[in-house]
Simulated scan of single mutants.
Amino acid sequence: MCTNGSLTCGALLTMESLTLSPSNIYPAFLFGTLTYVIILFCNLLVLMTIAMNRKLHKPMFILLFNLPISDMMGATAFFPQLVLSILSQSRSISYPACYVQALLIHLYGSGNLLILTAMAYDRYIAICFPLRYNSIMTQNNLVRIITFIWLIDFSLILLLLGLVTRFKVCRTNIVDVYCNNPSLVKLVCEDTSVNNYYGLFVTAFMLGGSLTVIVYTYIQILRTCVMTKQSDARRKALQTCGTHLVVFLILQVNSAFSVISHRFESVSPYMRRVLGVSILVFPPFLDPLIYGLKTKELRQSMMVFFKRNV
């Protein structure tokens, strides 16, 4: 990662200050730790419930199974380092640790978009082609979809972060609360045009591609719901898709703003950091609650699993 003539790999980088007063250090530490523990507990509960209940081994829940994995990866990349820096009152981080954090955070962000897109496709098939659902969402096709999600995710992000390793690092200030690709690129004093162009491509592919699929599938779902004469089925479909759409839009809007804002000096750094942190806090916290509480079958299975084991 670090080459001769640049900062050594052992050199420390400094992330943006949290501006906490001495009286707020321990409350912030406890709040951050408690949030991380709740995120892990809720997501692990969803994982274990789906894994141990054969009734939930359906395409919708198997796709959902990937979401807690991605959420815990993002939360683990962010919270332990955050609470440690709060307790030690130090915003220093080594370059390798910063690089790994950026890698995991980008894998989490793009992974969530792809998983939510696949879940929207599953709902589209289930609502618009119910009689063909079992023949389309077969086990083999489901494996292909999940493999495609993680293969695309790892391929794009590994190349994105791999391009940064070509350069000598000449600065030590990370302009965000956590490490990410834009902040790592800003440590470089050389021409980073290739990084910028590829970064725009990844952003357009992830955000634009997922948004296109979501818009198309939801238009078709809405059209089917309007045409159906069964009010109960229409209400259930709209409720399921409505919560899914809220989760997707929160991640989509915040991700777009956080990435694109780095390219405009006029954008408030404070606003960029707030929205950037929200990407790592709200989806991992809300996803298991939304899908666990809103999905009746999963909610009932979680209650049974919790009573039996806890």
Rank of each mutant, 00 (worst) to 15 (best):
Q220P: 04
Y95K: 06
R123K: 13
A102L: 07
I157E: 03
L142D: 02
P96W: 06
L142M: 14
A118P: 12
L113Y: 02
N173I: 14
T172C: 06
L163I: 11
A204K: 11
Q139G: 10
D153L: 03
L184M: 09
V202G: 05
W150D: 02
V143A: 15
I157V: 12
I221P: 01
I146E: 06
H106Y: 13
I221M: 04
M119T: 07
G111M: 10
K168D: 12
V185H: 12
R223T: 01
C128H: 02
L207S: 07
I127T: 00
M137S: 02
N195S: 11
M119A: 01
L156T: 08
L107A: 00
I146N: 06
C225L: 08
R144H: 08
F129R: 12
N173Q: 09
R144P: 04
Q101D: 06
I174C: 10
T212L: 15
T138I: 03
L131D: 14
M227E: 12
N173R: 14
R91H: 09
C189H: 09
P96Y: 02
G208W: 03
L200S: 15
D153N: 11
L151D: 10
Y124I: 01
L160I: 04
V215C: 07
N173A: 12
T192D: 02
Y121N: 00
Y216P: 01
K168G: 14
L131P: 01
L131W: 05
L103M: 15
R123G: 00
S135I: 12
I174P: 01
T147M: 13
L156H: 05
Q220G: 05
A204P: 06
N173K: 13
Y133W: 03
T138A: 13
L142A: 02
D122P: 10
I221H: 02
H106R: 03
I93D: 07
T138N: 11
F205S: 06
T172W: 05
L156P: 04
F154V: 15
L211A: 08
